[in-house]
Write a protein that binds this DNA or RNA. Structure first.
Length: 374
DNA sequence: AGCTATGATTTATC
DNA sequence: GATAAATCATAGCT
């Protein structure tokens, strides 16, 4: 009750009434057809009082703008965004050239080009595949956001320009609004970047967990390695080049080759008996095809020869214990017929004295005449 | 499930 | 930094 019907025009109407009135009008407006609105706009535009009104608005605006300006001038450097950018760059998720804005790129100089972190252990094809999947999603999402941002900006700009015919809107203001829009969109982008980073981190940690997962080498790889090992039994320390060659042939990494030789030496030494059969196989093989993976200067040396067994610098083929005897003998006295320095050589590596590292086996004492072997 | 073989990692040594 | 030796962790076989 209460609400008396609106009285005459002039006297100030009660506030409550005013609001509901305005609401009513708004509702009415929403009901209006577009054409109608357009027509009204046009009418307003052509109103004779318009220019005068406009200039008043401009004046008012002039004053308010000053007060607004003070507030809006800060420019957050946004360290976090920078961090994310750098990380994505380092992980190879974003390519340097692609960065449009933000100087993030500049200091990412150290990032590995492929994005793949250092070691060969990590360059897993699986990892790469998943990473590129992430990259793809990231870029397509980013592109989508950018597109949306462009569209929205354009829309708002048009709108403001359109409105500027009715009310004073300075280019500066438009610029500010556009800036605000970009700000919002970059917040969204930041989220995207963040989740991308998380995805990469998860991927990496999974990969590291899987590091210990062992997969047996392929038959071919094992063969290549064994061939070398048994054909250099007197000095099974491949040089760096030889390791690389072996790695290439076996489809392994150099560190895998190193691991393999480390394991092989120690296990062979610990239990030669167990390797007899294997030794026979490979020495027999290598005796025939002296293919040699080895270093240039390196001769398959003694190894190839012993096939026959006996001379065997080592435990080679047959007799397991015979080997021991041989070895003992060798250490006690110079071998007859100069045949076997080799044994000595072996003794040395088996005796746990690491050879002077890379020194190519070429120098192996055994080789001297070994070849003579028989 | 238990066992062995084997690739990878860690630690100590030179 | 390369290696020996010990150890870990899993593949693959029974």
């Amino acid at each position: 009750m209460a609400a008396p019907p609106r009285p005459a025009p002039s006297p100030p109407a009660p506030r409550r009434l005013d609001t509901s009135d305005v609401l009513q009008q708004i509702m009415a407006i929403t009901d209006q057809s577009l054409d109608e609105a357009q027509a009204r706009k046009h009418a307003l535009n052509c109103h004779r009082m318009k220019p005068a009104l406009f200039s008043v608005l401009c004046e008012i605006k002039e004053k308010t703008v000053v007060s607004i300006r003070g507030i809006q001038d800060e420019d957050p450097p946004d360290a976090q965004l920078l961090r994310l950018d750098n990380m994505l760059l380092a992980e190879g998720v974003c390519r340097p050239e692609k960065r449009g804005r933000g100087g993030a790129v500049a200091r990412a100089g150290t990032a590995t080009p492929g994005g793949c972190p250092n070691d060969n252990s990590i360059e897993h094809s699986d990892y790469r595949a998943k990473l590129s999947q992430i990259r793809q999603i990231y870029h397509s999402e980013l592109e989508k956001y950018e597109q949306a941002c462009r569209e929205f900006t354009m829309h708002v700009t048009n709108l403001l320009q359109e409105q500027s015919r009715m009310r004073p809107i300075s280019p500066k203001e438009i610029e500010r609004v556009v800036g605000a829009i970009h700000g919002k969109f970059s917040a969204i982008q930041m989220q995207l970047k963040q989740s991308t980073c998380e995805a990469v981190m998860t991927l990496r940690s999974r990969l590291l967990d899987a590091r210990r997962k062992r997969r047996n080498f392929s038959k071919q790889a094992t063969e290549v390695l064994n061939e070398y090992f048994y054909s250099h039994l007197n000095n099974p320390y491949p040089s760096e080049e030889a390791k690389e060659e072996l790695a290439r042939k076996g489809g392994l990494t150099v560190s895998q080759v190193s691991n393999w030789f480390g394991n092989k030496r120690i296990r062979y030494k610990k239990n030669m008996g167990r390797f007899q059969e294997e030794a026979t196989i490979y020495t027999g093989k290598t005796a025939v095809d002296t293919t040699e993976v080895g270093v240039p200067g390196n001769h398959a040396s003694c190894l190839s020869t012993p096939s026959s067994g006996s001379s065997g610098p080592f435990p080679l083929p047959s007799a397991g214990d015979a080997f021991l005897t041989l070895r003992t003998l060798a250490s006690l006295q110079p071998p007859p017929g100069g045949g076997c320095l080799q044994s000595q050589a072996q003794g040395s590596w088996q005796g746990a004295t690491p050879p002077p590292a890379t020194a190519s086996p070429a120098g192996d004492p055994g080789s001297i005449n070994s070849s003579t072997s028989n």
